[in-house]
Design a protein around this nucleic acid. Structure first.
Length: 498
DNA sequence: TTTTGAGTTGTTCGA
DNA sequence: GTCGAACAACTCAAA
């Protein structure tokens, strides 16, 4: 009998389109599915509290699926390498397979694990499956380094051959003669001690089955009008696949090919589905991973170096007001409360609250990235880093610095009836539409009739947006006044009118 | 090498 | 109320 092979599950908690599992299952010999909980190795970006909640349920789902195929998930806790070596010794395994991750800390760890395992005479095989295209496969024509602008990056991706067709889940997985010990999932203590995550459960179905169901529902109901509906937080216009994609319960290749199949059923042209807004969002996920792969320091430091001397504020009270959804700007507060209650926030609102933190409050984007990291069930290092650097204007393909969201206008435009605000800020629910996004300007009698007492039942604005905008523009302009050390040009004149 | 066109997601102001 | 222009300058990617 062939010796057993360990399949080391990480962010690929699925059976279908899982090359590490597929390769192992097809070559015969017992399969040992393993998950190792080693958050210390991911520091300083170990999974946050909301991610742990998701991970617990996703691992339970994976174990159930494995058991349906005569297998099971071995759960261990501790440093990856000694844990793997121990299992190798216990079982006589001769090979370890996994699917690659691109996070800097993980890449470094995997490299040393691979060296050590190989040194012990263990075969190691690592596969790409987290992206449509391997990071090195997407290159500028001149070979002048990685892409830093989304549009040409995505054009280059679309010019590549379609990503490989996903493999089906293995029908059976040969079991070892004797199963090695496994911790019960609860021993990992992934679930919160306090019951703050109770609100998550009815909204999400972690695991491969839930991911597939979510995708099918979106393809049936959301794909057609995604371009128009995706910006409306009061509607369910987005796919909500992000946590499933993050944990690898579904792969971008599966999404790609499912979109293609759905489009072909509807007779869409090849150009139409490949250039659809939804697949372009998958392109942003690719781009985020591409950037993290090539610029690993950007998780903590701005890509545009001049932003390192930006005069960010340090104000714990302001930060706390933002985190708790008590800024006095309803669309901002609604978003942050949705995040707290559900572990997720609509993409449009993520941009609004990010712009508000960075440009209205002048708090460092890293604080926002940290908060999202701890509270989002879809917290993903590549996407989170890209999103925050983009919002702060310090990233690769960043928003121009003068693009400062007006939270009142954004609210009116994307939550025109105030349904989203009323849902998450119920203390404002009785306000008429006219004032729902701007309660501090509502006449006193309107507030009274709606039962709103500003400063008591709902906060007065923590900053005046008009003034905050001016201050932010001035601070961003200050970055330009100081020439970079290597610059030989004269100091740029301030724009007229200042 | 130099040049050229372009760049997710916006707001404000003035006609 | 609506519409177009201005808001900066820079860097990227490709010709």
């Amino acid at each position: 009998m062939t010796s057993p092979t360990i399949v080391w599950f990480r962010l690929d908690l699925r059976l279908a389109d899982n090359p590490a599992l597929h390769t192992t299952a097809t070559r015969g010999g017992p399969v040992l599915p393993l998950f190792v909980w080693s958050p210390e190795e991911e520091a300083p970006w170990a999974p946050g509290a909301a991610s742990r909640w998701w991970l617990h349920h996703s691992l339970a789902a994976l174990d159930a699926q494995l058991r349906a195929r005569g297998s099971r998930l071995i759960v261990r806790r501790g440093a990856s390498l000694p844990t793997l070596l121990e299992l190798v010794r216990e079982t006589g395994a001769r090979a370890v397979c996994w699917n690659l991750r691109i996070e800097p800390a993980i890449r470094a760890r995997d490299a040393s694990v691979e060296r050590a395992l190989t040194g012990e005479g263990c075969e190691v095989r690592a596969f790409h499956s987290a992206l449509l295209h391997e990071p090195e496969a997407v290159q500028t024509r001149g070979g002048a380094g990685p892409f830093r602008v989304f549009t040409p990056f995505w054009r280059a991706c679309l010019a590549l051959p379609d990503p490989p067709t996903p493999s089906p889940p293995p029908e059976t997985l040969p079991a070892p003669a004797r199963w090695p010990a496994s911790l019960p999932l609860d021993a990992l203590e992934l679930l919160p001690r306090l019951s703050w995550a109770d609100g998550f459960r009815p909204l999400w179905q972690p695991g491969e089955t839930g991911a597939r169901a979510r995708l099918e529902q979106f393809l049936a109901e959301g794909l057609e009008r995604y371009g128009e509906t995706r910006d409306r937080p009061d509607w369910a216009g987005t796919s909500r696949l992000s946590p499933h994609l993050h944990f690898g319960e579904i792969s971008p290749r599966q999404v790609w090919h499912a979109v293609r199949a759905a489009a072909e059923r509807r007779g869409w042209s090849r150009a139409r589905w490949r250039q659809s807004v939804f697949l372009t969002e998958l392109g942003w996920r690719e781009f985020a991973h591409h950037l993290l792969h090539h610029f690993p320091h950007t998780t903590d430091a701005p890509l545009r170096e001049e932003f390192a001397r930006f005069p960010w504020r340090r104000d714990a009270a302001l930060l706390r007001a933002w985190q708790r959804g008590r800024t006095g700007y309803p669309i901002v507060d609604a978003g942050l409360r949705e995040l707290w209650a559900t572990g997720w926030m609509h993409n449009r609102v993520r941009m609004i609250v990010a712009s508000f933190l960075v440009k209205d409050l002048l708090l460092p984007w890293q604080e926002g990235a940290r908060w999202f990291w701890d509270t989002l069930v879809d917290a993903d290092l590549a996407n989170n880093t890209l999103g925050w650097q983009w919002s702060a204007g310090c990233g690769a393909d960043a928003a121009p610095f003068f693009r400062i969201f007006n939270p009142v206008l954004q609210g009116r435009k994307f939550d025109p009836n105030g349904d989203y605000v009323r849902r998450w800020c119920p203390e404002l629910a009785a306000l008429p539409d006219t004032w729902i996004h701007e309660p501090d300007r509502a006449p006193a009698d309107v507030l009274q009739r709606a039962g709103v007492a500003l400063g008591k039942t709902y906060p007065t604005p923590v900053v005046n947006h008009t003034i905050a905008r001016e201050v932010a523009l001035e601070a961003f302009a200050g970055l330009r006044r100081v020439p970079s050390p290597r610059s030989t040009r004269p100091v740029t004149q301030r724009a007229k009118g200042s």
